[in-house]
């Protein structure tokens, strides 16, 4: 419970700083950018707090797609004004990285399941406490 409150506060703080800072940017992408920030923060929150490890991985994916959507929102906005700085190579690199992180993370989760018989982080912590 404590962990959830602290994580929520941290995510809210990061979100507030990002929104305040980005709203001052001249090329802020409007509604799409807000939605992408929401997705980023939602993914971050889930990754930090959800006790189900596979949910954490889904949160990680949502967080990163939020970041890519943010890039595209800003590129879309500035391309209508003549200058198109769409960082597509970065998005390709980022996608490849996310898939690798997902794959290696899921491999670890499957192996952890063989030891503990569960994919719930809190239960694993409890079982680990019993072991020691």
């Amino acid at each position: 419970m404590m962990r959830k409150v602290v994580s929520l506060l941290a995510v809210a703080l990061i979100g507030a700083v990002l929104i305040v800072a980005l709203a001052k940017m001249p090329e802020f992408g409007g509604g799409t950018a807000f939605a992408s920030l929401f997705l980023f923060l939602l993914g971050l929150y889930v990754m930090l707090t959800d006790s189900n490890l596979i949910k954490k991985v889904i949160g990680l994916n949502i967080m990163d797609t939020g970041i890519f959507l943010f890039f595209i929102a800003l590129g879309y906005r500035s391309s209508t004004r003549g200058a198109a700085y769409m960082p597509s190579p970065l998005i390709f690199g980022g996608l490849a990285a996310v898939v690798s992180f997902t794959a290696i993370g899921l491999a670890m989760i499957v192996r952890l399941y063989k030891y503990y018989g569960t994919i719930d982080a809190e239960e694993i912590m409890r079982k680990r406490g019993e072991d020691e």
Binding site: F68, I72, Y76, S88
Partner: peptide
């Protein structure tokens, strides 16, 4: 993304 002009990503 396709609608916003980023077909390859």
């Amino acid at each position: 993304w396709q609608l916003q002009g980023a077909p390859y990503p």
